[in-house]
């Protein structure tokens, strides 16, 4: 099995007529994802990549029974788009959009919790279950099917690490980019709980970065609720305080959110922490032998 995503997920693309939306619809279809429809308000009736476009998520749901949505709409309209999917009962919502104000994100995260939708992102590359499906913007070729679950706050760094693993002959069950914003839907903690229950996942790679305390919080359940072996990497060891390192969430403020604090939290619960991204395959082999 995989977590959250397999070849059965029925996908709608919100913002399918935009440049990014149409481009990645094509790539997702090529990968084998069951993308069935698109939504762009005001453009219902046209076709993109051979898929029907509707004005509302409700139509896509009625006519195609979609259960998964990927959102490419600009930040200014993203809140409405996410709320629309939540209200139509979409179970998995992947928010690619960068720059959504946190007040909007906090609101839809609250609503998703109540309605039982899972939100991945915002400001994320999405989710891929290699060999099954991808709902996101990641390059498919860096992944291969296998026993490692990956969860990360980063995009390209995850591709880098996944590729190192793939080149070393170690495949992945599901790879999730949870997003680089200060407020995100699915957390490290949520992802680890899902991987723990997944038969196919034998070990987990967790890729954190400076800012916030998501890494410290997830460390609290490692070794207790989470028994599977984990290898971690934390980016931003040399980041200065008070400067935003690309991601809105990657900022050390008032001495908290440093890489050292996160690395210590992981080491304290027995997690192997890689010094360099390329050390991860060896560490994964090491923990899997144990």
């Amino acid at each position: 099995m995989t977590i959250l995503l397999n070849r059965e997920n029925r996908v709608v693309v919100q913002g399918i007529t935009g440049r990014q939306g149409s481009f990645h619809t094509k790539l997702m279809l090529e990968y084998g994802t069951k993308v069935l429809a698109g939504v762009t308000p005001g453009k219902g009736g046209i076709y993109v990549e051979g898929l029907p476009v509707y004005d509302t998520v409700a139509e896509a749901k009625d006519l195609h029974n979609v259960d998964t949505s990927i959102i490419f709409v600009p930040a200014i309209a993203a809140y409405d788009a996410v709320m629309e999917s939540i209200n139509e009962g979409i179970k998995l919502i992947v928010v690619i959009t960068e720059g959504i104000p946190p007040n909007d994100t906090m609101k839809f995260v609250c609503s998703a919790k109540e309605k039982g939708s899972i939100i991945i992102g915002p400001n994320c590359p999405g989710i891929i279950s290699p060999g099954e499906a991808k709902v996101g913007i990641m390059p498919g070729f860096v992944y291969k099917k296998g026993p490692i679950g990956i969860v990360s706050r980063s995009g390209t760094l995850t591709y880098e690490i996944a590729w190192e693993l793939t080149k070393a002959g170690i495949g992945q069950s599901t790879v999730i980019g949870i997003g680089g914003d200060p407020i995100v839907g699915l957390t490290f903690t949520d992802a680890l709980r899902l991987f723990e229950k997944d038969d196919e996942t034998e070990a987990i790679v967790l890729i954190g970065e400076i800012g916030g305390d998501a890494e410290e919080r997830v460390a609290q359940i490692i070794g207790k609720e989470i028994k599977k072996k984990i290898v971690a990497y934390v980016a931003g060891r040399t980041a200065p305080e008070g400067k935003r390192m690309g991601h809105a969430g990657a900022i050390i403020s008032a001495g908290s959110g440093t890489a050292m604090s996160k690395i210590k939290a992981f080491k304290d619960v027995g997690v192997e922490v890689a010094e360099r991204p390329m050390d991860i395959p060896e560490l994964v082999k090491k923990v899997m032998k144990k």
């Binding site: 995850t158 680089g180 040399t238 690309g246």
Partner: peptide, 30 residues
Amino acid sequence: IGNGAGLTMATIDMLTYYGEKAACFLDIGG
């Protein structure tokens, strides 16, 4: 210069690992 915030941070960390210091963090994006 790197593409992606996490990858660029990791590149800078690699320099530090080998005892050098980066002049800047510049994420060119995708």
